[in-house]
C-alpha cells in the first residue's frame, strides 16, 4: 500500500488559519438531506486545492467525498476540518479519511454542544441579562465581546485539529488497509446510531377497542417489536432505492415530503 501514496503539497500555518475562518461557512448550504455537507466542503476546498495542486482528478474525488451527510457543532467543525486537512496532506487513503470524519462528527458535536450551548451560553446569558434588566448597556456589550472572542477561537481550534492529525498519522500510516477497515467499522456503527437518533417516525393512530380503552399502534405494536424500527426500515428502503434502483435523491426527498403531509392529513403520523 505504501507505494500507492502520492506526493501532496504541504499546507502552511496561514492555510490552517484561513481554514479556521472559513469554517464560518459550515452551515451556509444547510439542508435536511445532508445537513452541513455543502458548506463544510465549501470551507475545505481552498485547502484541498492547495494539497492536490495540479492533480485535478484527485481534487474532484476528494471534494466529492466531502459532500456526504455531516452535522456537527459549529465550534467543533474547525477541529475536524484541521484534522482532515492534515490527513489529506499526507495522502491517506480515501476510506480512512471519510471513515474518520463520519465517525467523529457526532461525538465531537456532543462535546461541542455541551460546551458552547449548555455551558458558555447559559453563563454568559445569565450574567449579562442581570445587567441588561437594569437597563445597562454593559449587558449586550459584554455579550457581544464574548462571542467575537468565540468566533476568533475557531483559528486555534483549527490548528489544534491539524496538529492532532499530524501526530496520529505516523501510526495510521503503517497499516493503512487495516486502518481503513477499522475506520469503516467505526463509521458504520456510528451511522447505525445516527439513524436511531436523527430519523423520527411516530405513528399516532390509536385503535379504539372499547369506549374507554384504546391501543396505540406505536406504543403497543412497533415499540414492542423494536424501538425505532420504522426509521431503520425507511432508511433501508431509501438505501435500496438509491443503490439497486438508482433513484434520484431529489425524487426521494419529494416522496418523503408527499408521504409526510399525506400521513399527517390522514392523522397517521
Amino acid at each position: 500500500m505504501e507505494s500507492e501514496k502520492k506526493e501532496r503539497n504541504k499546507l502552511s500555518k496561514r492555510d490552517i488559519t484561513k481554514l479556521g475562518l472559513l469554517s464560518l461557512f459550515n452551515q451556509s448550504g444547510m439542508n435536511y438531506q445532508r445537513m452541513q455537507a455543502d458548506g463544510w466542503t465549501f470551507a475545505m476546498i481552498p485547502s484541498l486545492k492547495k494539497v492536490y495542486g495540479a492533480d485535478k482528478k484527485g481534487l474532484i474525488e476528494a471534494v466529492k467525498a466531502n459532500l456526504q451527510f455531516i452535522n456537527t457543532n459549529n465550534y467543533a467543525a474547525p477541529l475536524l476540518m484541521g484534522l482532515e486537512a492534515s490527513l489529506e496532506e499526507n495522502g491517506e487513503e480515501r476510506s480512512t479519511i471519510d471513515g474518520l470524519r463520519v465517525a467523529l462528527f457526532g461525538p465531537i458535536a456532543g462535546i461541542g454542544d455541551a460546551i458552547t450551548w449548555y455551558t458558555i451560553l447559559p453563563i454568559v446569558a445569565g450574567v449579562t441579562a442581570s445587567f441588561a434588566k437594569q437597563g445597562s448597556i454593559l449587558g449586550p456589550l459584554v455579550f457581544f465581546i464574548v462571542y467575537v472572542a468565540m468566533f476568533l477561537a475557531r483559528i486555534p481550534i483549527a490548528h489544534l485539529g491539524y496538529s492532532a492529525g499530524t501526530k496520529a498519522i505516523s501510526k495510521i500510516h503503517e497499516n493503512s488497509a487495516i486502518v481503513a477497515h477499522a475506520a469503516s467499522v467505526l463509521g458504520c456503527t456510528v451511522i447505525g446510531g445516527l439513524i436511531a437518533t436523527y430519523v423520527q417516525i411516530d405513528v399516532v393512530t390509536k385503535i379504539q377497542v372499547t369506549s374507554s380503552h384504546s391501543i396505540s399502534i406505536q406504543k403497543e405494536f412497533f415499540d414492542n417489536i423494536f424501538p425505532n424500527i420504522l426509521p431503520l426500515a425507511y432508511t433501508f428502503l431509501l438505501y435500496w432505492l438509491l443503490k439497486k434502483k438508482n433513484v434520484n435523491p431529489v425524487t426521494l426527498i419529494i416522496l418523503t415530503f408527499f408521504l409526510a403531509i399525506l400521513f399527517s392529513w390522514m392523522g397517521v403520523l
Partner: peptide
Amino acid sequence: ILPAVGFGLLLKSMLKAKYVPYLLLGFTAA
C-alpha cells in the same frame, strides 16, 4: 424523516455486507 435520505446516500457509498452487523449494533446501542 428527511435525514434518512442523507443516511441512505451515506450507506450507498460506505456500506458493504460485512459492515451490516456493525450498523445494527450501533443502531441497537443508540
